[in-house]
């Protein structure tokens, strides 16, 4: 499990981020004494650092500058300073992303995912095994008993989202929210069309009635498999 270090002085915020990261498949840890932070970071040796700029007795940008002399660990700056100058300085000092408070945690999570993936960490599930079928995310295909079918980007995302919430009713709104987060601004009609197409493609693989419509509530994907990450 990738280890994420939170360097943030606000205790409550730090705890909430930690809870969220732990719920999403990461191991969160933090420091609460902000003395000699860069050596603390090196000692903990995390896979990714979430770093605040205004810390007691320390400055995040200065820490980052010193840290970069010794380590290439991915760093995301999280700060309430919303101006271009601080962003520019942070990026120049070697930050990978600059996120301002209050942040959208889903987007932050997506950034963490891609950063870790880039630093060769196989956190992103390449394949999702749903017992009845396997979704291969890297080449956007669904495989069942040796037969495979290609999905479009939207269809893949919808199927992935339904799989992640399998045996649970997912509202249309939730699906749209999920798609919008990856900057795919589809509307209601497009979603209907996408789901219809996804269904017919799955039927080609003999996966009939996999996605059920729950009137007035949303959709549900019923299957028995547990997540297995390759």
């Amino acid at each position: 499990m990738p280890k994420i270090l939170i360097v943030e002085d606000d205790e409550k915020l730090r705890n909430e981020i930690a809870v969220f990261l732990n719920n999403n498949g990461y191991k969160a840890c933090f420091i609460d004494i902000f003395k000699d932070v860069e050596n603390e970071i090196l000692k903990i040796n995390p896979d990714l650092v979430l770093l605040d700029i205004s810390l007691p007795n320390a400055d995040g940008q200065y820490i980052l500058k010193n840290l970069r002399k010794k380590s290439n660990v991915p760093v995301i700056i999280i700060t309430s300073r919303a101006n271009e100058l601080d962003e520019l300085i942070s990026i120049n000092y070697g930050a990978d992303h600059y996120v301002t408070k209050p942040f959208n945690i889903q987007i932050l999570l997506a950034k963490i995912n891609t950063l870790l993936k880039r630093s060769n960490f196989q956190t992103l599930q390449d394949k999702i095994d749903a017992k009845d079928f396997v979704i291969n995310i890297s080449n956007s295909k669904v495989i069942k008993e040796g037969k495979e079918i290609e999905l479009t980007k939207n269809e893949l995302r919808i199927l992935k989202f339904l799989c992640e919430n399998r045996n649970k009713i997912v509202s249309r709104e939730e699906i749209m929210n999920y798609l919008w987060e990856s900057e795919n601004f589809i509307d209601d009609n497009t979603l209907t069309v996408n789901i219809a197409r996804l269904r017919s493609k799955l039927e080609e693989l003999n996966l009939k009635k996999l996605i059920e419509t729950k009137r007035g509530q949303g959709y549900i994907l019923k299957c028995g498999g547990e997540d297995e990450v390759y």
Partner: peptide, 18 residues
């Protein structure tokens, strides 16, 4: 003040998310 208020705001949003 705005920098300060953003911290409880961020915390509140995180609590909502969790």
């Amino acid at each position: 003040w705005i920098h300060e208020i953003k911290i409880p705001l961020a915390t509140s949003k995180m609590i909502v998310e969790n």
